[in-house]
Structures are given as structure tokens and as C-alpha cells.
Write a protein that binds this DNA or RNA. Structure first.
Lengths: 93, 93, 93, 93
DNA sequence: CCGGGAGGAGAGGTCC
DNA sequence: GGACCTCTCCTCCCGG
């Protein structure tokens, strides 16, 4: 495991070329994953298109999905606020 | 008012130098505003420091401030969600 | 697909409940896909973390990945405009 | 500063209510400052809008402003690392 | 072609 | 003081 990839001061050619192939491997993994991610984004868009074709309001549908993901967190926060105010009064209060 | 600042194709030297001084003015205004914004951020940090010095729990205090800013929005959103579900059922539903 | 869906007259209870179950199905499909997308985003973040642990500069790494997924032409044009603006301001600042 | 603040014995009602009013004051000061900060952020956005209306490329403009507010040294180092990575990957691809 | 929303990058804060 | 993590801001892309 090379310690640094930025400078090749005391490093051998082997270390450098290892860093190089390591860099290549990392970039390729990232690009592969991003490709898959993009494919999923396309799938999602397709589902919205299908929804629209069936007469659903896409914008509202997106809002519903977004809110479903937020609701639990908000609920927790709302119930935590009293506790928080107490804490905010400080240890010295 | 110059139509374009990117290219000087058919433009006279006057137009160019006008675009130049206009650009300078814009940048200076932006930088001035950002300076003021940064100063306010420093002031805010100072107030938290003062709070801490008086025994308040800074983290909780930040949370309280954050929630106070969110509460009205959350309430609105929560009341809007039923409407949203209705809309999501689509015009054709 | 509910059996009641055979009847699709406007404004009937059947139509409404069909729309409802259809909405439910759509939301669930979307949420499933978004879950998978999020998992991939996490994987990508992990790879960057690994890169960092091996001494790579993640900010530069991100820049390189971005550049690779980009038309050379548009990048060149962008840099040309930036240069133009810097010249107009007097390059050093 | 409330008159009751003269008494500061631990756990007394006076101490608690003093802490409460102090908390209120702190929160209000912070919210006032954040309001002003937000107003400045809006102003900045407006200036960019104006620039855009006059034909400037706002993305490039933002880049220039960023560069001006940045040490030349760090920018150079960043670009050097990017170049290094690109070389390692074979510059074009 | 524009505006709005979603995703990503950078900045700041907290914890160790 | 350094790493992680949240949050804000910027960018990009879709929809109108």
C-alpha cells in the first residue's frame, strides 16, 4: 500500500507505476458505478413517464415520494425539540 | 446595454472596454457583498462563543435555531400533503 | 392488478381505488429504485474513501473523473471565457 | 439584563428564568444576523442575475470570483495534481 | 429557452 | 489537530 500518490520524491519506478495502475483501477471502478447509477436514474424517469401516461400528476408524485422520505425524520425532530430546549438552557442553567 | 460579453466579433473597442468596466463593477459588487456576508458569519460565530461562555450548550442551541426556522415550513408541508396525494391521483383518476 | 379494475367508469369508487393501488405500486417501484441508486452512491463514496486512504487527493480525483466524462470542446470553451474575464480584470486580480 | 439576575444561586427560580431570557436574547440575535446574511446572499444572487441579463456567462464569472479569492499557490498545486493524474491515466482518456 | 428540482461539491462544525 | 458529517451553495437536467 503506497503511502502517497502525490509526489515521487524517494519512490522507485515500481512504486510510481503501481500508483498509476492503482489510480486507473480506482477511476474505472468509479466510472462503472456511475454508469450503473445513471441507468437507475433512467429507470426512475421511465416509471415517472409511465405514471404520467396513466394520468398521474408527475410533479405531485415526485413531491409525495420526497415527503415520504422526510416524514420519519421530521417526526423524530419534532418530538426531540422539547428535550433540545432543555439542553439549550445549558449545564449551568 | 451590451448584448454579449463573450465575443467581440463586430463590436467596437468602445463596446469592449464598456464590457470590461461593467465586468469589473460586477465583480467588485459581488466581492463587497461576500465580504459583508462573511463578516456576518463571523458575528454569528461570536454570538455562539458568547453563549458557550455563559454555559449554554452550543450544539443544542444551533439545533434550536435551526428548528425554529423549519417549524413553519414543516407545518405548511404537513398540511399540504393531503392535497398533494389528491393531486397525485391525477386528473384522470 | 385488482379484480375490481375491470370496471373503469369515471367517478366510480372502483376507479378511485384502482388509481389508489396503482399510485401505491408506482411509489413503491420508485422507492425501490431510489434505494438501489442510493446504495450505488454509497459505493462510489466508499471508493473515494479508499482512494484517500491510499494517499490520493480526492478533490483532484473527482476533477479528473469529471473531465473524463466531458466533451473536450465544452471544457475548452469554458476555460477560454474564464481567461477572457481574467484578462478583462487584469490577470493577476 | 433582568433585575432578578442579581441573584445567581444554583437551582433557584431566578437563575432559571434568567437563563431562559438570556437564551431568548441569544436566539433572537442569531436569527437577526442570519436574516441579514440571507439578505446578502439574495443580493449576490441578484447581481449574478444582472450579469446574466447583460450577456455574461455566470458560471465562468463565479469561477473568476472564486479564483480571485484564492491563494495562487494552492490553486497551482491543485492543478499540478490534476495534471499528474491525467498523465497517469494517459492525458486524453 | 427558462425555471424548478435533484444531485454533487465545498465549507463549517463537531467529535475524537 | 485531523477526519467525519451535516448543511449550504452551485451545477445540471428535466419539464413546461
Amino acid at each position: 500500500m503506497p503511502a502517497a500518490a502525490k509526489k515521487n520524491e524517494s519512490a522507485s519506478a515500481d512504486t510510481t507505476s503501481f500508483a498509476k495502475s492503482q489510480l486507473k483501477a480506482l477511476v474505472e471502478r468509479i466510472e462503472r458505478l456511475e454508469e450503473e447509477k445513471k441507468a437507475l436514474a433512467d429507470d426512475i424517469r421511465e416509471v415517472y413517464g409511465e405514471a404520467k401516461a396513466n394520468g398521474f400528476d408527475t410533479k405531485a408524485l415526485r413531491a409525495v415520494v420526497r415527503m415520504r422520505g422526510q416524514e420519519p425524520a421530521e417526526r423524530q425532530e419534532f418530538e426531540a425539540i422539547v428535550e433540545l430546549y432543555r439542553d439549550a438552557l445549558g449545564i449551568g442553567g
